[in-house]
Design a protein around this nucleic acid. Structure first.
Ligand code: SF4
Ligand code: SF4
Lengths: 134, 134
DNA sequence: TTTAATTAGGACTTTATTATCTTAATTTAA
DNA sequence: TTAAATTAAGATAATAAAGTCCTAATTAAA
């Protein structure tokens, strides 16, 4: 499993905000939840995490909701996924982490550190402006 | 989380068999469990899955144990991980799978199918002979 | 100033994963 | 032919992830 379900939801949420017309400022979570058919309450949890990560901003009360906190080009897939999964995104090593000493790496070490950094680069290089509705 | 803990264990198990001297035929699970400090019983479950996948073979009774069922060069990281995780390895898409029609893909579709296949290739191309003890 | 619309956050429930335990089935060798 | 060494596999338990529910805190507008 590359990313957890929570990360999938987070990507959907951000994608929703990125692809909607810019003039709308805050979109309420209940409307988003309905449109992407996802539990309103769970979406709320996801949104909170993304707010703490500085990816979304919220506003309470009537006409409130969530909106992007930064420009789409400044939000990468990596930002979203790592906000949700924390350090757990991309296993530090492919076998149980830290069962080794730096001066005595297991045979997987070099292979894995390259794979890992390549995957990370891909996620860093996909930013949300690729998905802005034209 | 790129791979689950079970996959990590499976990789450790195969790596153990790959790096040990070839003359030993079957290695008993209790000895392996002790050497890689992992629950004997859980390791048994993992081994069974790998046996069903044709990666390991086992032999019961005294002097029994597990051994590779094929040559190291014919076992890739992809084989091991996908044996454990099944279709769940590498999310089919980065948002909830199958919420789309082929003729009306979401904006992520092309980006993701490239990322996905690149990652898959990396896992396919790392085979166990890289780790054979010289 | 009251009501309605919203997010915030804690408590709880359900489900999936991981881990353990127990018994059965093989196989070797004494 | 019995005992010991093993894997096989099902049952159960513990933990983590996902999902739901409830109450509080904000904010706007009637
Ligand atoms: S040497 Fe590297 S790959 Fe091996 S266990 Fe340590 S961190 Fe992981
Ligand atoms: S169009 Fe592609 S990326 Fe989008 S939901 Fe469907 S399979 Fe996933």
């Amino acid at each position: 499993m590359l990313v957890t379900r929570s990360s999938e939801y987070a990507i959907e949420l951000v994608l929703y905000l990125v692809t909607r017309p810019l003039e709308d400022s805050f979109a309420p979570l209940n409307k988003i939840a309905e449109e992407i058919s996802l539990s309103f309450h769970f979406l709320g949890k996801i949104a909170q995490i993304l707010v703490h990560a500085g990816i979304l901003k919220t506003y309470r009360g009537p006409n409130g909701g969530v909106a992007l906190a930064r420009q789409p080009q400044d939000i990468s897939l990596f930002d979203i996924v790592s906000a949700i999964e924390g350090d757990a995104f991309l296993n530090q090593c492919l076998i149980r982490p830290m069962r080794c000493a730096d001066d005595n790496p297991c045979p997987l070490h070099d292979v894995w550190s390259h794979i890992r950094s390549d995957i990370q680069d891909v996620f860093l290089n996909v930013s949300m402006d690729s998905f802005v509705k034209s």
